[in-house]
Design a protein around this nucleic acid. Structure first.
Lengths: 88, 88
DNA sequence: CGCCTATGCCTAGACCGTCGATGTATAGTC
DNA sequence: GACTATACATCGACGGTCTAGGCATAGGCG
């Protein structure tokens, strides 16, 4: 989702849900830990929103993150093609 | 894999690997527990091979298993289509 | 103003599947 | 006799998911 531009956690969940036509939904208990893992791994970086009001942590992809995302996309294509094949 | 006919565990792993062009590989530590789960759930049934020599547990799908497999196939289609969509 | 809902962040812990390691035994090959 | 492939199985560390819970702000409504 971050490939479409920076955004905060809650928003990324909505992007996923909307982008998948409501089919994909990541609960917050999975979403936030996942973002923290990605940040620890250096794939995303974050900063607190400087604007007043609601506090938001804005995430953006790092170059390592973009590389990893590309690799994961390729893995997904290969994997899903393999599954499609065995399903006949 | 059992949809292609009855077979024993080790064989099913090979069917998967061959059927996926070597892309999919289920280690025995995942394969056998999975078969036992499926049997406990009533999705497959098994019997020891009556022939002499190597002991083999032959698995076959039950009607409940065939129904569940069909449902899982549909779920996979919907899911992979959703992922493909969000990947752009 | 009080209430409710949506937004926005987060963690704890139960739960469950994966997989490397390990063990056992037989068949076939060199 | 040694090695590899076949064939079954379990154990336990590991790691990700998700329900449940907590906290706080913004906006709409009566």
């Amino acid at each position: 989702m971050l490939a479409d531009g920076p955004g905060h956690g809650y928003e990324l969940g909505q992007r996923l849900t909307r982008g998948s036509g409501g089919e994909l939904d990541v609960p917050e208990g999975s979403l936030y830990p996942a973002l923290h893992r990605l940040e620890r791994g250096g794939f995303v970086a974050s900063a607190w929103s400087s604007g007043a009001g609601r506090r938001r942590r804005i995430y953006r992809m790092t170059s390592a993150g973009r590389r990893a995302a590309q690799a994961s996309r390729r893995e997904w294509r290969v994997f899903s093609a393999a599954v499609d094949r065995v399903l006949g």
